[in-house]
């Protein structure tokens, strides 16, 4: 019999709203996506100079992960190599891919930049979360047409069951053509304060909330 796993914290950013563990902490539906993300950063005074170098996708992931881990400081409990980061999205890094493509498509105005190019990989956002929190465990970025709670739920459970991770940061971070959504959660073997079992049904419920 496999031990139960629990969703011990979650953070959702969509439609101009920031929700942490079921509580709406910030909302501003008047701003376009890019400005909204900046205003969340300022509102919560996250104070991380590297934020300004990031592409929109990594900024969104950074904010969601920071608010998540402020509500549940898992790194005080687990060793760096025991925490995994397993994240997915639909548009990969297409937002910044388009930006990089625009710097090379005109031969007379050719200016590819390493600062842009480095973000043309979706897993860079995992790297940003890992650097910020000193996390060294398993990391994988998946692509799905939409949030796949069955796959993500069972894969994370199998990582914890096989002790490949003791805690997993997982979820969905997508940003393309002004549409954005972040939903990150921590999964642990202990109930935590939320006492929500980690399974596909609960993941869907919280993702769609």
């Amino acid at each position: 019999m496999k031990a139960k796993k629990y969703i011990t914290s979650y953070c959702s950013i969509k439609n101009g709203k920031v929700n942490v563990n079921g509580k709406e902490l910030f909302s501003d539906s008047s701003l376009p996506s890019v400005d909204f993300i900046k205003s969340v950063y300022k509102h919560f005074q996250l104070n991380y100079p590297k934020f300004y170098k990031m592409d929109h996708l990594s900024k969104l992931a950074f904010i969601a992960s920071d608010l998540l881990l402020k509500s549940n400081p898992i790194m005080q409990k687990y060793a760096a190599e025991d925490v995994s980061i397993i994240i997915a999205n639909s548009a990969s890094s297409l937002e910044i891919d388009t930006e990089h493509q625009n710097t090379i498509s005109d031969k007379n105005n050719y200016f590819p930049s390493p600062a842009v190019f480095v973000y043309t990989l979706p897993n860079i956002l995992i790297g940003e979360i890992a650097i910020r929190n000193c996390i060294k465990g398993e990391n994988t970025f998946f692509i799905f047409d939409k949030f796949d709670s069955d796959f993500m739920g069972s894969y994370n459970n199998s990582l914890l069951d096989s002790n490949k991770a003791k805690c997993s940061i997982s979820g969905w971070v997508d940003f393309y053509e002004n549409k954005y959504q972040a939903f990150l959660l921590t999964i642990e073997k202990e109930q935590g304060i939320l006492n929500i079992e980690h399974n596909s049904e609960q993941l869907n419920k919280l993702y769609n909330n």
Binding site: I124, G127, I131, K136, E138, N139
Partner: peptide, 11 residues
């Protein structure tokens, strides 16, 4: 098989 992160630098 296993994966890991350096938590050091993105590039």
């Amino acid at each position: 098989g296993a994966s890991s992160n350096d938590a050091n630098h993105i590039s």
